Simulated assay, not measured.
Amino acid sequence: MDDAEPPRHEPDENRPPQRVPAFNVPPVILASLGLLIVVFAIQNLPWWSDETLNWLYFTFSFIPARYAFPLSQQGLEWLWTPVTYSLLHGSIEHIAFNGLWLMVFAAPVARRIGVARYVIFWIFSAAASAFLHAVIYWGDQTLLIGASGVVSGLMGAACRFAFPAMDTRRFGIRQAHLNPRLSIAASLRSRTVVAYIVMWIAGNALVAFGITIVGDSAQPVAWDAHIGGFLFGFLLFSLFDRQPRIEVENSAPSAE
């Protein structure tokens, strides 16, 4: 019997390049955007009365004044409003701006930590943003709505692994979720991360003084909630992170 000819492997440089979609957003991010759009559409149904709208905002917006009084004397809104406020938006500009940044910064985080951890991260980053807002505006009766705090949390989380790719060039931008997680100290030694944080702080400082560069300038912006979310994502991302599969494979002992 003749020996079978071994399969021929075409050199990598001769293989046609794989086509990478120009717009590739994880399904959980698309689901998040869809949920925000559906909630916004419900908010703006034309047949709502003023009383119904007031009930909707009172029941699902975050109000710092709720926590300045004994919770036993209130309803149960204080339980869910630290999260549900992040699903409400006040205008098309508001939801469009948050949706854009959600696609940019949530995509690498979602690819890295998976659906379940992404949902948990959303819940806790929303609560952290609301907590700092409540501390600064203790007893205030204004309403806090919008996903900006969560988006800021995702920005802070991305600083721990996504931006260093620009320094090390270990993976391309589309594979940034495969980068090893940096410690807080190592992140602050990255020129890319530091430059981004400085620009982010400068932008929120302008907002604090009433200067809105992008987004909806017709409504006050809760810059403090942004800071709460960012600090949560940057400082506590390791609690939600999981080691990238490529790192696990490379660290596994090989048999000789």
Results as ranks from 00 to 15, higher is better:
247 E>I: 10
27 P>I: 08
246 I>T: 06
137 Y>T: 08
24 N>D: 15
242 R>L: 05
89 H>Y: 08
52 T>R: 13
187 S>N: 12
147 A>V: 06
15 R>E: 09
123 I>R: 02
52 T>Y: 06
71 L>G: 07
194 V>A: 13
53 L>G: 12
125 S>T: 09
253 P>G: 00
227 I>M: 08
234 F>Q: 05
112 R>S: 07
247 E>M: 03
26 P>F: 04
202 A>H: 02
67 Y>C: 10
218 A>G: 14
103 M>G: 08
222 A>W: 03
33 L>T: 01
88 L>P: 00
17 P>Y: 02
64 P>S: 05
126 A>T: 07
150 V>D: 03
206 L>T: 07
66 R>K: 13
110 A>E: 09
241 D>R: 02
211 I>D: 09
115 V>K: 10
244 P>S: 00
14 N>T: 06
173 I>R: 15
178 L>H: 09
48 W>G: 00
221 V>P: 11
5 E>A: 15
46 P>N: 05
177 H>L: 06
196 Y>S: 14
2 D>I: 14
80 W>H: 12
139 G>W: 10
46 P>L: 03
152 S>G: 04
25 V>A: 11
161 F>M: 01
215 G>E: 12
175 Q>M: 09
4 A>D: 15
128 A>C: 13
198 V>L: 15
24 N>F: 01
200 W>T: 05
100 L>Q: 02
86 S>I: 00
248 V>I: 11
137 Y>V: 04
108 P>E: 04
66 R>A: 12
64 P>M: 05
167 D>C: 01
240 F>W: 11
158 A>E: 00
158 A>I: 00
12 D>C: 04
155 M>G: 01
171 F>Y: 13
125 S>A: 14
80 W>A: 00
72 S>Y: 12
104 V>Y: 01
18 Q>K: 12
169 R>I: 01
239 L>R: 09
36 L>Y: 14
186 A>W: 12
225 A>D: 05
142 T>F: 13
20 V>D: 02
141 Q>K: 10
46 P>M: 03
213 I>S: 08
148 S>P: 01
255 A>I: 09
60 F>I: 03
125 S>Q: 04
43 Q>W: 02
2 D>G: 10
187 S>D: 11
141 Q>G: 12
181 R>V: 15
238 S>N: 06
33 L>F: 09
215 G>I: 12
24 N>G: 04
45 L>W: 11
108 P>F: 03
226 H>N: 14
175 Q>W: 00
62 F>V: 07
71 L>F: 06
211 I>T: 09
165 A>Q: 08
7 P>M: 15
112 R>Q: 08
67 Y>S: 08
154 L>R: 03
238 S>I: 01
148 S>G: 12
109 V>R: 08
144 L>K: 02
80 W>C: 00
251 S>M: 04
154 L>V: 07
11 P>F: 06
59 T>Y: 10
203 G>K: 08
219 Q>Y: 15
135 V>Y: 08
74 Q>G: 09
211 I>Y: 14
12 D>W: 11
67 Y>F: 15
183 S>D: 14
143 L>C: 02
156 G>Y: 00
63 I>K: 09
200 W>K: 10
182 L>K: 14
59 T>R: 05
224 D>V: 15
141 Q>Y: 06
62 F>D: 13
24 N>T: 02
